[in-house]
């Protein structure tokens, strides 16, 4: 088992024929992901990477039975692409695109309320179920099948955690990068709930950063409903107030969104908080022994 995606997921690439879409679609296929086709408006009917290209997501879903999509569409058109996926009945849509205007995402969030679609991202590395399906841009070779679920707001820091888990002799069920923007489709808590319900996931790693209240929300839920050990790390313990640290969402606004405040709440809620990002792997390994 795993969460959200697996070897049976039928994946569509939106922005298939662009350079990013092409590069990463090829990597995803090499990993073993079932990429069943792609969408590039105006290029319908062509073949790309031996797979059919469609003009619309709806048409692609009808022809291929796709249930998951990944979006590499440039920022001005990305919000529209997400809503098109939702309209076509895609179950999970992963948006890699960085730099989508916030007001566009306000509309997307509202639109998705009336749809079944789960959005992951935007501005994220994607989701991977180890040794089954990679729907994202992460380096596949660092993942091994195993008992640890990983949820994180960042890209390379996720790889760091995953690599430590693998080198500690464990592996991952699913790793999900939820993205660093102010508005994202899947929260830390959403992912934690899914991992708690997944029989194969025995422990969870939750990586957060300064800004917002997602980690605190997740921590309070874990205190009440958690059934598995959770290891937590918050990046930005040394970040100054009022400066945005790369991610649009990573800015300390109030007292509650500093790293120290989040770490305190998480600890109080029974999460195993590590101060150093170098100790993520060994801590989960000890807990799962």
């Amino acid at each position: 088992m795993s969460i959200l995606v697996n070897k049976n997921s039928r994946v569509l690439v939106q922005g298939f024929t662009g350079s990013e879409g092409t590069f990463h679609a090829r990597q995803m296929i090499e990993y073993g992901t079932q990429v069943v086709g792609g969408v590039t408006p105006g290029k319908g009917g062509q073949k790309h990477l031996d797979r059919p290209v469609f003009n619309t997501v709806k048409e692609a879903v009808e022809e291929t039975g796709a249930d998951v999509s990944i979006i590499f569409v440039p920022p001005p058109f990305a919000a529209d692409a997400i809503m098109e996926a939702a309209d076509a009945g895609i179950k999970v849509t992963v948006t890699i695109t960085e730099g989508i205007p916030t007001q566009d995402m306000v509309k997307v969030r509202e639109y998705l309320k009336d749809h079944e679609t789960r959005l992951i991202g935007p501005n994220c590395p994607g989701i991977i179920t180890a040794e089954e399906a990679k729907i994202g841009i992460m380096p596949g070779f660092i993942f091994r099948k195993g008992p640890v679920g990983v949820v994180s707001r960042s890209g390379t820091l996720t790889y760091e955690a995953v690599d430590q888990v693998t080198k500690a002799g464990l592996g991952q069920t699913t790793a999900i990068g939820i993205g660093g923007d102010p508005i994202i489709g899947t929260s830390t808590l959403d992912a934690i709930k899914l991992f708690m319900d997944d029989p194969d996931t025995e422990g969870i790693i939750m990586i957060g950063e300064i800004g917002g209240s997602m980690e605190a929300d997740a921590a309070y839920w874990v205190r009440k409903h958690g059934t598995k050990p959770v290891v937590g790390f918050i990046a930005g313990q040394t970040a100054p107030r009022g400066r945005r640290m790369g991610h649009a969402g990573a800015i300390i606004g109030g007292k509650a969104d500093t790293a120290a405040a989040k770490m305190k709440i998480m600890t109080e809620c029974g999460i195993h908080v590590v101060e150093s990002p170098a100790h993520i792997g060994e801590t989960i390994a000890k807990l799962l022994k």
Binding site: S152, R153, S154, G155, T156, L157, T158, E160, G180, I207, E209, I210, F233, A235, G236, Q237, T238, A239, R243, M245, G246, H247, A250, A259, E275, S276, P277, A278
Partner: peptide, 23 residues
């Protein structure tokens, strides 16, 4: 490379007895 890892690197500098000069 990466904003999250950059913040985490600043944190590890602090934990090692230094102070980050930048992000």
């Amino acid at each position: 490379n990466g904003a999250g890892l950059a913040m985490a690197t600043m944190d590890i500098i602090k934990l090692s007895g230094g102070q980050p000069a930048n992000f």
